[in-house]
């Protein structure tokens, strides 16, 4: 099989969330002696990109995305066996994410966390109703590159402002990026409280973070 055909098939197996097929394909690809990094970047990642578009359009759903991300992980693990040690397990950035204190709405935040994992970010999902101090402690502990908070209610979005201040007080703010989202928030709100950016959807979050870290 030509290399281009391998790329096409890898992308399609990811779109189909077919773990068995992508695993077999990755093994065959290595036997052929092709570059494993190229398959991750041009085959598997293309599949993930297509999935993102389909998810945004409501044509595939969350469980499919999860199963596809597992298929991606399996294929990457096989390809990593033939990669230089310094390239193995490489993540784009470390992201701490959670729904702000007082707010229990976390469906959207969960989708953002899942999409970021699928796209190669290391995500530390703190869950819902997360105290400000917990965001700060986790960011410090893992050396976060990004801290993201979600708020669905106008009563809880003020917590995002408190988070900005807490990160400054802890001396962390200058070394990381803050992003926020949730139905109650807007770009104007993000600018007003000094967050680095606001994201409208899971796809928007991925696109903006990829621009920064790729």
């Amino acid at each position: 099989m030509e290399k281009a055909e391998y790329m096409e098939k890898a992308a399609q197996h990811i779109v189909d969330a077919d773990e068995e097929a992508v695993e077999k394909l990755a093994r065959e690809y290595l036997i052929e002696g092709f570059d494993p990094i190229e398959m991750i970047e041009k085959g598997l990642s293309e599949g993930i990109r297509k999935l993102g578009v389909l998810f945004d359009r409501g044509e595939i759903f969350l469980p499919h995305l999860i199963i596809a991300s597992e298929a991606m992980t399996t294929a990457v693990k096989i390809l990593e066996q033939a990669m230089p040690a310094d390239q193995v397990g490489k993540k784009l950035a470390k992201v701490v994410i959670g729904t702000i204190e007082g707010d229990v709405h976390d469906i959207g935040k969960g989708i953002v966390a899942t999409m970021l994992r699928v796209y190669g970010f290391e995500v530390f999902d703190l869950g819902r109703d997360v105290p400000i101090a917990t965001f700060v402690e986790k960011a410090k502990e893992i050396g976060a590159d990004v801290v993201g908070s979600s708020a669905l209610m106008t009563t809880t979005m003020v917590g995002q402002k408190a988070l900005e201040k807490a990160l400054k007080d802890a001396g962390l703010r200058d070394n990381l990026i803050t992003m926020l989202g949730g139905a109650a928030t807007t770009e104007h709100w993000a600018a007003k409280i000094g967050a680095n950016f606001w994201a409208e959807s899971a796809g928007d979050t991925v696109m903006k973070l990829k621009e920064i870290f790729s």
Partner: peptide, 25 residues
């Protein structure tokens, strides 16, 4: 949402799905 943890008796799909527990979700 009120039927899923922590407010209800069933596991929360928002926790189960990212953990890969699709069947449980």
């Amino acid at each position: 949402g009120t039927y899923y943890s922590p407010d209800g008796p069933f596991g929360n799909p928002s926790d189960l799905l990212p953990a890969g527990k699709v069947k449980e979700a």
